[in-house]
Amino acid sequence: MRRIYAILLLLNICACSNDSSNRNPFLQEINFRFDANLNLPTYSPLSNTGSAVWVPTQGVGLRGVFIINVGFDQFRAFEASCPNHVPNDCSTMILDGQLVTCACEDYQYSLFTGQLLNRPDDDDGDTRYYDMLEYRASFNGSSVTVSN
């Protein structure tokens, strides 16, 4: 009987996962909800596949969000603050088509994937680089809802 309890305890411990290693230490995650009405001129570019907009609204993300139409009524939304350092004067990224660039180090990210495209080649291997922080994006009729 003790052996069964020991095995169950071991399985329970092994089944637990710790996602804290994936957590970006530079960006705090905040709760928000934002609706982008595609009938409004500001968000109407999102009606076209591959088009992106920056939403700099206070309280929507840390420094706003980027929303992109990735096709087939699917949208993705990402934090506008560079994920590889603490938010500061130069950390709000600049939208250029389907790419965004951090003015601090010229890191460039894809809005289709959120991936850092020009990851530095560090000799020490100890530096960790983060991809963009993604938020939930859902499409309903003529509105894209972004939330966290």
Results as ranks from 00 to 15, higher is better:
44 S>Q: 11
109 Y>N: 00
130 Y>R: 12
51 S>W: 15
147 S>R: 12
135 Y>G: 04
13 I>P: 02
130 Y>G: 13
59 G>N: 14
118 N>Y: 09
47 S>I: 14
32 F>T: 04
3 R>W: 09
111 L>D: 11
75 F>D: 05
27 L>I: 10
28 Q>I: 04
25 P>A: 08
141 G>H: 07
94 I>F: 12
7 I>Q: 01
147 S>Q: 13
103 A>F: 14
132 M>F: 10
6 A>D: 01
58 Q>S: 13
35 D>N: 15
145 T>H: 06
102 C>M: 00
47 S>R: 15
141 G>N: 09
24 N>T: 09
81 S>R: 07
37 N>S: 02
108 Q>L: 03
62 L>Q: 13
148 N>A: 03
96 D>I: 07
127 T>N: 08
73 D>R: 12
96 D>P: 03
56 P>L: 07
114 G>D: 00
48 N>T: 14
16 C>D: 07
21 S>T: 12
123 D>T: 15
145 T>I: 07
110 S>A: 02
125 G>Y: 08
111 L>V: 09
26 F>R: 07
86 V>N: 12
75 F>P: 03
10 L>P: 00
37 N>P: 01
60 V>T: 06
118 N>K: 11
81 S>W: 09
105 E>W: 10
32 F>W: 05
53 V>K: 08
99 L>M: 05
93 M>C: 04
78 F>P: 07
106 D>W: 03
40 L>Q: 11
61 G>L: 00
44 S>D: 08
46 L>V: 07
113 T>N: 06
66 F>M: 05
139 F>M: 08
140 N>I: 12
40 L>S: 14
145 T>G: 08
109 Y>F: 08
54 W>Y: 05
60 V>L: 06
138 S>M: 05
4 I>P: 00
67 I>T: 14
82 C>H: 10
97 G>Y: 12
63 R>N: 15
29 E>L: 14
19 D>Y: 04
28 Q>E: 02
137 A>D: 13
64 G>V: 04
37 N>G: 00
85 H>R: 08
127 T>L: 03
37 N>Y: 02
99 L>S: 05
119 R>V: 14
84 N>P: 07
102 C>E: 01
101 T>H: 04
22 N>H: 04
54 W>L: 02
55 V>Q: 08
115 Q>T: 04
